[in-house]
Nucleic acid binder design. Structure first.
Length: 263
DNA sequence: AAGAATGTTATGTA
DNA sequence: CTACATAACATTCT
């Protein structure tokens, strides 16, 4: 489920609800079940998002790193909360609410050195104030790899997943197989801006809606999941009704409209 | 109710 | 060394 917007949204919500408080930590079936006690009952200092990664920082600099992967999900419970289900890898709880994590690719205890090592492998994240767009743009413009592959490469740009790849390329009429270096500086810069705007909108809505509500003729709030994209998981192009093409690109399904996105 | 899914990494092969 | 393919891993939803 998650692309960068989900992660940033979680960081924001968890900062509001958990940071600055004493947090009960348990990891019933988790990788650090034995060490959860070291964090239990201490103050959570803050929650940080970078691309698709989350970092929970405790007093004395211990960090819990979470990556949701394809299936990871947080669920919140208010008082009287249930016993964690067998699939729960991490539970964070204050007096008011409990947050359960299931299905993560990663949920591990680490240090700021581990965090730094991880961030070295990530490109700029458009949702972060410290992002340097020119790093991603330069990589695109230098590479002969298909732009559809470059968008999923987290070391080039962090936070884009399969939906935003399909949709951002559609908006610019770009075929996913176009080599990055064929874009040119202006188009590449425009693509960054589009991705950043889509991600920001995603944080606001807490879901992905990439179609223009005016184009659909319905307010944003009344756009259903099935109507929320131009080509991603669509049979026909939401703009011109051509049959959408779907093929494997970089190990994931790529979607494109042959008419709106010629090669 | 089988199958698909908004992901990543390690390993094998060319 | 690069580049690609494949497998492995996580779980829920339709």
């Amino acid at each position: 489920m998650p692309e960068g917007h989900t992660i940033h949204r979680l960081a924001r919500d968890h900062t509001r609800d958990l940071a600055g408080r004493t947090v009960a930590v348990s990891s019933p079936q988790g990788r650090f079940a034995d060490r959860a006690a070291t964090l239990d009952g201490r103050v959570l200092r803050g929650v940080e998002a970078y691309g698709k990664h989350l970092f929970y920082r405790w007093e004395r600099d211990e960090l819990v790193h979470v990556h949701l992967g394809l299936f990871g999900k947080f669920r919140r419970h208010t008082l009287p909360w249930p016993e964690p289900k067998a699939t729960v890898r991490l539970r964070l709880a204050t007096d008011e609410l409990a947050v359960d994590l299931t299905g993560p690719t990663d949920c591990s205890l680490g240090t700021r050195v581990d965090r730094a090592r991880l961030l070295e492998r990530l490109g700029p994240d458009p949702l972060r104030a410290d992002a340097d767009p020119t790093l991603a743009i330069a990589r695109w413009c230098r590479s002969k790899a298909p732009i559809g592959k470059l968008l999923l490469d987290q070391s080039v740009i962090a936070g884009v997943g399969n939906v935003f790849r399909a949709e951002a390329l559609f908006v610019h009429g770009l075929h996913p197989e176009r080599p990055g270096r064929s874009l040119g500086d202006d188009l590449a810069a425009a693509l960054w801006v589009t991705i950043a705007a889509m991600l920001r909108q995603g944080v606001r809505d807490n879901r992905i809606v990439t179609v223009d509500p005016a184009e659909v003729g319905r307010p944003r709030s009344r756009i259903t999941r099935a109507d929320a994209t131009y080509v991603y998981r669509q049979d026909t192009c939401r703009r011109c009704a051509s049959p959408v093409r779907r093929w494997d690109l970089g190990g994931r399904w790529a979607y494109a409209c042959p008419s709106c996105q010629p090669l």
